[in-house]
Structure formats: structure tokens, C-alpha cells
Amino acid sequence: MFNIAITGEFVAFFTLSAIMICGAVLMLSLEKVVHMVISMAAVFIGLAGMFVLLEAEFVAFVQVLIYAGAVSILMIFGIMMTKHHAVEQEPSKPLHQTLAAIAAISLFGILFYAIRTTTFPEQQQPFQPGEDNTMAIGELLYTGYVIPFELLSVLLTVAFIGAIVIAKKEAD
């Protein structure tokens, strides 16, 4: 039925997929927020590995640098700056769990069917493998997208200042 050759790329894909899925499940199921952030960082690192498999080394580097590094550290600082009170969870209801399981399985089935039946057109690669894509990304970012890039940096700065103000109000 399936004619699959077991290659190093195939093994790396499934290893990285397992890391990402385990990290995502752990993030949803762990109770300590710091442990959640660490499992989220594992998902980000697995995604960076996927980018390496796609020969997008620059994007993988940025993924590790920005998301696995900076965002995770920022979230840990945010957790440490705010007060957290223990919240008792109400007992889970079996009807809700059953409906959630049915919804998840249905979503998986719909997505699986959609992916298997979709025919994708041949794409022309804008970059040839082995080329220096970093230079092309930099030129495109600083010529065609310089205004959105600068607006994003202002937005992130305002969000960070807002988070500090909110944390200060809670401390007082």
C-alpha cells in the first residue's frame, strides 16, 4: 500500500514530530507553568529541526534564537513577576470529556481526509537548494517590508511595557 524508503530524513522527521507532539501534550497537561514553558520550548526546537529538514537554515536559526530563547525567557520572567494563587479545579465531567474526544477525533478525520484527497499543483521554487537564502530574505525584509517590520518592533515594545505596568499594579 505504502512504498516508503527508510532514510535518515524520514527518521529525523518522525523523531522531531514525536518531540513536538510530546511537548505540546505535556504543555497542556502539566500543572506548573515553568514546566509548561519548558515543554513549549521543546516544541519550538522541534519546529526548528523541521525547518532544517526543509533546508531553511536561517529560519531554523531564527526559530531557536527568537522563540525557543527569547519568548521562553520572556514568559518565565512574566511568570516570576506576577502573583499566582492556587486555584482549585472543579471535577471533570464525563460528558464534556466524551464530547471533547469525539470533536478531536472528528477534526483529525476531516483533516486527514482533506490532506489525502487534495491535489497540490507543482510549485516553482523561488530559491534553488544550496543558494544563500539569507541574503534574499534580508533584502526582501529591508526593502519591501520595512514598514511592517518597524511597526512590529514598536508593537512588541508597547506590549512589553504594558506587561511591566500590569505586573507593577498587581505588586502594589
Rank of each mutant, 00 (worst) to 15 (best):
V64D: 05
M36S: 14
F14T: 14
L155M: 14
F108L: 08
I21W: 05
A68N: 02
E131T: 15
K93T: 07
P129A: 08
L111E: 13
F58L: 08
F112H: 08
K32F: 12
A5D: 13
L74Q: 00
A100G: 02
H35G: 11
E55K: 13
E88A: 12
F51M: 10
A24R: 02
V62H: 00
F108P: 07
S72N: 04
A24W: 07
F120W: 12
F149D: 06
H85L: 11
L53D: 03
L30P: 04
G138M: 09
P129M: 10
V71G: 00
G8H: 10
I161K: 04
E9P: 01
Q63K: 01
I115Y: 15
S153N: 10
F77K: 11
V146T: 07
K83G: 03
I45W: 03
L152Q: 13
I45A: 10
M20T: 05
M75P: 03
G130P: 11
E122Y: 12
A104C: 08
A18Y: 02
I137G: 09
T98V: 05
E9Y: 09
M1A: 15
M40H: 03
S17W: 13
G162R: 00
F58M: 00
A167S: 01
F13L: 11
T98D: 04
I45T: 14
A68G: 04
E9A: 14
Q123Y: 06
Q63N: 06
Y67Q: 01
F44W: 07
A136Y: 03
N133H: 15
L95F: 05
F120P: 00
A114I: 09
G78A: 00
I102M: 04
P148C: 01
G130H: 05
I79Y: 03
L155F: 13
A56C: 08
E139V: 09
I105N: 01
M40N: 09
M40I: 14
F61L: 11
T117H: 11
F58A: 02
V64I: 15
L156T: 08
G162S: 11
Y67L: 03
D172V: 07
V34E: 15
G138W: 01
G130K: 06
E90I: 00
F149N: 06
I38T: 13
I105F: 12
P91M: 06
V158N: 00
P126K: 00
M1I: 14
